[in-house]
Structure formats: C-alpha cells, structure tokens
Write a protein that binds this DNA or RNA. Structure first.
Length: 552
RNA sequence: GGCAGGGUAGCUCAGCUGGUCAGAGCGCACGACUCAUAAUCGUGAGGUUCGAGGGUUCGAGCCCCUCCCCUGCUACCA
C-alpha cells in the first residue's frame, strides 16, 4: 500500500551561500526522507525553490550596489550548485518565487482570501525616511534607548539592555539608510485576519499530537497568547504586486508569498510534465500527506499563518507534519548566521570533504530535539572512526577477501548455519526498524540502526574468521563471505538515503543490474556467481595531523 | 521582560505516558585477532546519580515550586 506524500522544504533566501545549519536543519533531512520514502515505494513529490523577495534580498542589493534581481541571479545558481554537490537531488522541482506562475498563484490566493473576508484594509502610522522616500522597518531605525541610554539601539530591541522597543520610542531616531530623521506617516495595508482563525487553528493544533513537542508547544503558545491580525503588504517595490487597483506602490509581504510557493511549485511541476492538473492530487485529496522541513524560526509561518491561509482558502489540505529542527551552533557558541557572517558555508566545506562525509556527520548531529554543535574535529573523527571504521572497512574487508580467495566471484552457498541465518534476520529486521525511524523523521536513530547492523556484521566476521577457515574449510569461508556480502548489500540500501554517493559506487562495484532505487527498501541477496568490481575504498581517511593548520 | 527548548559519563548526545533509567557512540586502558583504509572483536575504568535547592509519591533525569546557566523566538533577517 503506497502512500502519496508532498514534501515541502523551506525556501532559502537567494541572498547568500547556504550555511551548514540550513543543510543539517532542513535540506539533508528532507532529502533523506524523500530517498527513503521512494525506496519504500511511496509516491513523493518534493518541492521548494529560492525565495527571491523580502528584506534580506533588498538589503544585500543595497549593500552591494546592485538590483534585487542581480542578487538573485548571483546567488540562485550558487544554491543550485550546493544541491548538486551535496547530493540534495531528490527535488521534483526546485524553482524560484520569480515565476509568472508563482505571481499568479499568490495573487489568486490573495484575492480569494479578500473575497471570503479574511483580508482587511487598515491604516497605521509608520516611520518614514523622507530622504530615501521609503517606510522603515523597525530594524532600520536606530537611536538612543529610552531605558538605558545606549546610543546604538535598534528599533525593535536594544542590544545593550535587551529590552524590546517600539521604534517610535527611540530618542533621536535616525534611518539606517540615510541617517535622516524619520517622520511618522500613515500607510494603508491589507491584514490577514488571523483572529478569525483563533479557534479553528487551536482545535486543529490540538490534534497534531504526532508533532515534535517543541513545534506543538510553540504553536499552541501563540494560540494561548491570542493571535493578532497581521499586515501582509509592505511599502516596497520589490515583490509580488498587490492585485488591487491603486496599490501599485506596494507589494505583498514576502512571507505571504513564500509559503504559497509550496502550492505554486507543485503546480509548476505538474505543468512541466504536461499534466497541468496533477498538482490537485497533492492539495485536494485528504489521502495525500504534506510534510514540511524547516528551521525552528519558521515554525509559526508553517503552523499558524500558512494553515490559516489554507483554511481561509477553504479547499486545500493542511500540513500533516512540520518537522522543524533546532539550530546547529558553532564552536564559539556562536550561531550560524548569514547576517553576522560567521559559520561554515556548505560549498566551502565540500571543498575539503566529500559530500557523504559531510552528510554523515550532519546527520549524526542533526538538531532534531535540541540545538547541536558543529565541530570540524568531530566531523573528521566521525569520518575516520565511525564511517570508515565500522562501515567502509566492513565492505572493503569482505570484498577484498572475496577477491583474494574466490577470484572476485561471489561464492554460492548451500544450507546456512544458524549464525548466518541470524545475521540475515538482523539485516531484514533493520529494514523495518530503520525504515520506521526514517518515516517518523528520526534520522539520527535511523542511521544508528544501520550502524548497529554493520557492527553485528563485523562481529560475525570475527567470530567466523573466514581468513582462517579458508585454509581448512573452504565452504565455511564461502558461506561466511557470501552472507557478509549480502548484509553489505542490505546496508548499501539502508544507508543510501544518508550516503547516496558512496552507496551508488558500491552498487556499481557489485555489478548488479539497475540502480539502488530500482531495488526498493528490502533485503535482497547478491546472486552467487556475481563478479565483483573493486575493492576500492569508499571513503577517504582524513589526515588529522595535516588538518590542524586549516581554517575553522 | 514574555514565550519555547536545553542543562545526563572527557566529548557529542539517547532516555516515550514516573518503578532493570543510570545508557549509546566516540575517546581512554587492557586483552584477542591479523581479512581489511593500524581497520575489527572482547573486557574495563569513568557520572560523588542525571545544573542547584526544596516538595509530591511506596518509588523521580522523568511530576510540582524556587533559583542559576546556555540557546532561540518575540510577530519586517535563516
């Protein structure tokens, strides 16, 4: 019984390189999930794209003296390159928010909500920079803190005393763009009437007991505090135009259009393959489950705002799972942040380490329940002492022995001994346990299950010592090596979601027909008589002595 | 300030609804083995008992209260 899944992954802003936190928090887990679910025989559509609107883009554009469009043209390809090199290649579609289809879909949702009474116009006073001729977000206003007198306080918060501020409270306020003194000017905006969804959202959230505790508690906290209507337009010129007469000077708020991206991307996917209505199977059918992979900062947008928009629209299904991860912190206790310029970029890391090494380590420290810490020494240790020692070496020692003693041809076996039967039973069982963990979005423990099997196989080899047996009892050795190879073949599949590159190489070496994907999530023995390639090391050991001088 | 998550062996972390819950991996020590990328396998030391202090209970990392520390969010930066 196959399931139909829509996997939605948070849209990265196309304003910089991707950092390790984003990879470990959203993209690698989503990729593992999709690879597993497809192996398990489920139909999966995976969508995302580069978010090309929003303040981060315009800020970068101003800083670099180029247009927002130029920023996107510069960084979107870098993101695509990152996917390619890191093996995040399960996308059904990876698009951008600049497509005609996305603009049309966003405006369609906007008008639908307007028509159904879930959007309202309101006027509010906002700070305005008369020199730059633009309204100022709170963070773009600086001044003296009314509480502690700190002169560099930002409009939303004072970094010195930590108090939350309202930009109009600042003493001697100035615009961060021009230094001009902001003036109050009234501005009209559309608001999403979240208050109208208070009860409906509360009831819906209460039923999501399968969600991670922090995701659920955080969302329920918003409900308990009471939702507030939220402005979904901005006084800017970069973004999706407001589809209402006389609103040419404003644009739709980036978060409103970004979440709609999941829907518009699914439509684009369907168009691309020539079945323009196929997206409906994922949005209109309750049998299809939506999974969202995001960082924890995006939780409210996916558990409150987007569901409210969908409820307001009235026809589409709501999220099934919101697998929000915590953050990956860095040695100095600094958070990984684009704006502060700290941290390790994925592309940079991939210049020094193989994609599978990076994926392996990031899966091990995946911040599923709590923030975790990235340390380059630990990455090296995980590669050398676990990935290679437990798994890479297992494959290598067995294939080497088959080459040395059986000319590289997998020996046929007769009746198996109890130890071999037991080990194969363990391999079969691991498909069930690791699969269940992956399906539940527990990627660390899913990986652990496979590593346990590798350890059992190593133990089995030591117990049966085929290198010794081959001299006295060739059939005993043949059984051992064939069995071990079968378990390695199982591990190749079990580890494929996490380690797609090296398991594909191993698959080639086994000279089996088709791809790993064709085989599915199940134990399958390697036929006796198969001629193996290799042996070759699947992973490169990292020299720790030479590494010391490298940048952190 | 408010809200959320976290503080468990040297390190990174598991511990679901309270009763083998004091654990895993790495590191370390010792032993075995030598097929393998000096990899593997076994054994063991290590936590003054799970941030501090109270409390509930027959029984608490797991529940309640207070305090300390770390991280994030606080609605216009992942």
């Amino acid at each position: 019984m196959s399931e139909r899944l829509l996997v939605c992954v948070g849209w990265p802003y196309a304003n910089y390189f991707l950092h390790v936190g984003q990879a470990a928090g959203a993209y690698i887990p989503a990729d593992i999930f999709v690879r597993y679910e497809r192996l398990a025989g489920n139909e999966v559509v995976m969508v995302s794209g580069s978010d090309c609107h929003g303040t981060p883009i315009t800020v970068t554009a101003e800083r670099e003296g180029i247009s927002p469009r130029d920023v996107v043209d510069r960084y979107h390809p870098k993101i695509l390159e990152t996917w390619e090199k890191l093996g995040i290649t399960s996308w059904s579609i990876y698009t951008t928010t600049l497509t005609e289809n996305h603009y049309a879909t966003t405006q369609e949702i906007f008008l639908r909500l307007l028509e159904r009474g879930y959007l309202e116009k309101r006027t509010a006073d906002q700070l305005y920079d008369p020199e730059a001729e633009r309204f100022l977000p709170d963070r773009y206003v600086e001044g003296t803190c009314p509480h502690c007198g700190y002169k560099e306080a930002r409009g939303d918060q004072c970094d010195n005393c930590g108090k939350t501020l309202d930009a109009v409270e600042l003493i001697e306020p100035r615009s961060r763009f021009t230094g001009a003194t902001p003036v109050l000017r009234s501005s009209e905006h559309y608001f999403l009437m979240l208050t109208k969804f208070q009860d409906q959202l509360g009831e819906w959230l209460a039923k999501q007991t399968h969600w991670r505790r922090n995701v659920l508690n955080f969302s329920l906290g918003w409900i308990t505090e009471g939702l507030q209507d939220r402005a979904i337009t901005r006084d800017i010129s970069w973004g999706v135009p407001v589809p209402v007469e006389g609103w040419d000077a404003k644009r739709i708020y980036v978060w409103f259009d970004a979440v709609i991206g999941y829907l518009s991307a699914t439509r684009e996917w369907a168009q691309n393959k020539g079945e323009p209505d196929d997206w409906k199977r994922f949005w209109l059918d309750p049998a299809a489950k939506q999974y969202y992979f995001i960082g924890k900062d995006n939780i409210p947008f996916h558990t409150i705002i987007w569901p409210a928009m969908l409820m307001g629209h009235g026809e589409y299904e709501l999220p099934y799972e919101v697998a929000a991860n915590q953050y990956v912190n860095f040695s100095a206790g600094q958070k990984q942040s684009k704006s502060k310029g700290t941290g390790t970029w994925v592309l940079e890391l991939l210049e020094r380490y193989s994609a599978d090494t990076v994926r392996f380590y990031l899966t091990q420290i995946m911040p599923e329940t709590a923030d975790s810490e990235f340390r380059e020494e630990e990455l090296i240790r995980a590669n050398n002492d676990i990935l290679i020692a437990t798994w890479g070496n297992l494959a290598n020692r067995v294939i080497s022995m088959i080459h040395r003693n059986f000319d590289g041809v997998v020996p046929a076996t007769g009746e198996l001994s109890p130890e071999s039967v037991a080990l194969i039973g363990d391999a079969r069982a691991t498909f069930a346990t690791a699969g269940a963990e992956f399906h539940a979005c527990h990627f660390r423990s899913g990986l652990q299950e496979s590593l346990k099997l590798a350890q059992l196989a190593n133990r089995y080899l030591d117990d049966r010592a085929p290198w010794k047996a081959v001299k006295t009892d060739r059939e005993h050795a043949a059984e051992t090596l064939a069995t071990a190879l079968n378990v390695i073949n199982a591990l190749k599949v079990l580890l494929h979601p996490v380690l797609p590159f090296s398991t594909a190489e191993l698959h080639e070496d086994m000279a089996l027909e088709g791809s790993i994907e064709d085989g599915g999530w199940a134990y399958a023995p390697v036929p006796g008589g198969t001629r193996l390639g290799g042996p070759r090391p699947l992973y490169v050991k990292i020299d720790t002595t030479a590494q010391a001088a490298g940048p952190a």
